[in-house]
């Protein structure tokens, strides 16, 4: 099994592991950030470039460094590979640059965005962003388009990670949406306005790292940190039936899939569980959902 050293910590991983997964095995919190990579979706990753790392030694047999920074999520480990992640000023500076570029056309409307509090971009900016912007032009704006009565699309907030495209390709039985246009005019859309409506479409909301795709049934109901997440399961014929209920008192405000330590959905749930079972009597509650200590949700001072 190949041994890889990341920031002078050695770890042994199975052949075919990416640098990202190796780093997550060491510690999910110090692993490179990922906006577009989602381990549950084939082919995702490599696009947002926030996970760029420096390979100072390619392998035991080839001690040369790689000429450019490489995306950790799409680069496979080799035996004897030495990687610098948080210890390299070059990586930190590149990451800072990527965050700045991701934000120049982002509306930064966190105060009115439903994703605030569980937004990957917000966390990334908190960690690597600058305190102010150097971008003085008008930000890119898109007219609002409807994707049906379950999913709300805010194209202005989208960072074009392509996760929802992969999710729709791999989870649902027919993809209705995709990326239209080219360059910075790219947008997520259905081309001819049409509602995205099939059994697993709700997962597009879960895989979206920002507030571009949000749950219409939860919209403006509550800030996420005012709700209390609990694990629950139910008998479901179409999916695993394991979800997270976001409670306010005894009221179920929304239901999402379960996430791992790095915020990736581990088991996808169907729309019946997500949208049509919003009552405690549909579910068997297991207990509180583990929430990262540093997340604003765990500061949960407001729930009983």
């Amino acid at each position: 099994m190949p041994k890889i050293t990341i920031d002078s910590i050695e770890v042994e991983v199975v052949q075919g592991t990416t640098i990202m997964d190796a780093a997550r095995q060491i510690d999910p919190h110090t692993a490179p950030p990922a906006m577009c990579y989602h381990s549950g979706l084939n082919g995702s990753g490599g696009k947002c470039r926030t996970c760029l790392v420096k390979v100072v030694q390619t392998s035991e047999t080839n001690p040369r460094p790689m000429p450019k920074l490489v995306p950790a999520c799409r680069t496979l480990v080799e035996d004897g590979m030495k990687v610098e992640n948080n210890s390299s000023p070059e990586v930190i500076s590149a990451r800072k640059g990527i965050v700045e570029l991701l934000l120049i056309n982002h509306p930064l409307d966190c105060p009115v965005c439903d994703q605030a509090g569980e937004c990957d971009l917000q966390n990334l900016t908190f960690q690597h962003g600058a305190e102010t912007t150097r971008y003085t032009e008008d930000r890119r704006r898109y007219p609002t388009k409807s994707l049906g009565n379950l999913i709300q699309l805010h194209m202005n907030r989208c960072i074009l990670c392509f996760r929802c495209v992969y999710a729709a390709d791999q989870l649902t039985d027919g993809r209705d949406h995709g990326v239209l246009n080219r360059g910075d005019a790219s947008e997520i859309g259905t081309y001819i306005e049409k509602s995205i409506d099939n059994d697993f479409s709700g997962n597009l909301i879960d895989v979206c790292p920002v507030g571009a795709l949000t749950d219409k049934t939860f919209r403006f109901k509550s800030r996420v940190w005012f709700t209390k997440p609990v694990y629950a399961h139910r008998q479901c014929e179409t999916c695993c039936g394991k979800g997270v209920l976001w409670l306010k008192g005894h009221e179920v405000l929304r239901i999402t899939g379960r996430r791992n330590a790095v915020g990736e959905v581990t088991e996808f749930i169907c729309n019946t569980c997500r949208f049509e079972s919003k009552s405690l009597h549909h579910w068997e509650v297991e207990g509180p959902a583990p929430i990262d200590q540093r997340s604003v949700i765990s500061q949960n001072h407001y729930t009983s």
Partner: peptide, 15 residues
């Protein structure tokens, strides 16, 4: 001509 797939090129060329 930027294809818009990766963020530095998509946003940076426009900037």
């Amino acid at each position: 001509e930027s294809c818009g797939q990766c963020s530095p090129c998509r946003e940076g060329t426009g900037w």
